[in-house]
Amino acid sequence: MTIIGARQWADGPFPLISTPALDGDMKDPFTQAATEMALIHNIIIRGMNSIYLQAPHVPVDDVQPFIGYCKAWSEFLHSHHKNEETILFPTIEKAAGVPGLMQPNVSQHQQFHDGLAKFDEYIHAALPETFAGQKLIEILDTFARLLAQHLADEIPTLTALRTYGIEKVPIIEIAELEAKHEFGTINKTTALAFMMTALDVTYEGGIHKNFPPAPAPVLWFLRNVCTLPCRAFWKFAPCSTGGRPRELYVGDRVQ
Rank of each mutant, 00 (worst) to 15 (best):
K82I: 03
I207L: 12
H113R: 15
D120R: 04
S74I: 00
H181M: 14
D141K: 11
N42Q: 04
F131W: 10
L222Q: 14
L192N: 13
A117V: 01
H124F: 12
A148P: 02
Y164L: 02
E93S: 03
T157F: 11
T227P: 10
G12E: 12
Q54H: 05
D252L: 00
A237C: 02
M26G: 01
M26E: 11
Q64W: 14
D200F: 03
E176H: 03
E154K: 00
L161M: 04
Y52R: 01
I40D: 12
M102F: 07
L248G: 05
H150L: 02
P229S: 01
F131I: 05
P29C: 00
T197M: 03
A6K: 14
V106Y: 10
Q149P: 07
I43E: 11
L146A: 04
E138R: 10
R244S: 15
T159L: 10
F14S: 01
R244Y: 14
S50R: 03
L158N: 04
E85D: 15
G243L: 03
T86F: 14
E182W: 12
T185L: 10
A34C: 06
K180L: 15
I174E: 06
D23F: 13
H113N: 08
T142V: 07
P90T: 01
R253K: 14
P156V: 00
E36W: 13
R46W: 08
P156D: 05
H41P: 12
L248M: 09
M1D: 15
P104E: 07
A55E: 04
V106M: 07
A191D: 05
A96D: 04
T163E: 15
L158R: 09
A34T: 02
A125Y: 06
H78W: 15
S240L: 05
S50E: 10
I4G: 02
R244V: 11
V250A: 03
E138S: 08
E167N: 08
K94E: 15
E129S: 14
T19V: 01
F112A: 06
G242I: 07
T19M: 07
N83P: 08
R253A: 11
S74N: 15
Q134N: 10
K94A: 07
V63W: 05
D61M: 05
D114S: 11
F211C: 07
F14L: 08
H124G: 14
V63S: 08
D200Q: 05
D11K: 02
Y249A: 07
A96V: 00
D153A: 14
K188W: 10
P90N: 12
G251V: 00
V169I: 09
A6Q: 15
W9N: 08
A216C: 10
T189N: 13
P213F: 09
G165R: 04
M48K: 08
T35P: 08
L161T: 01
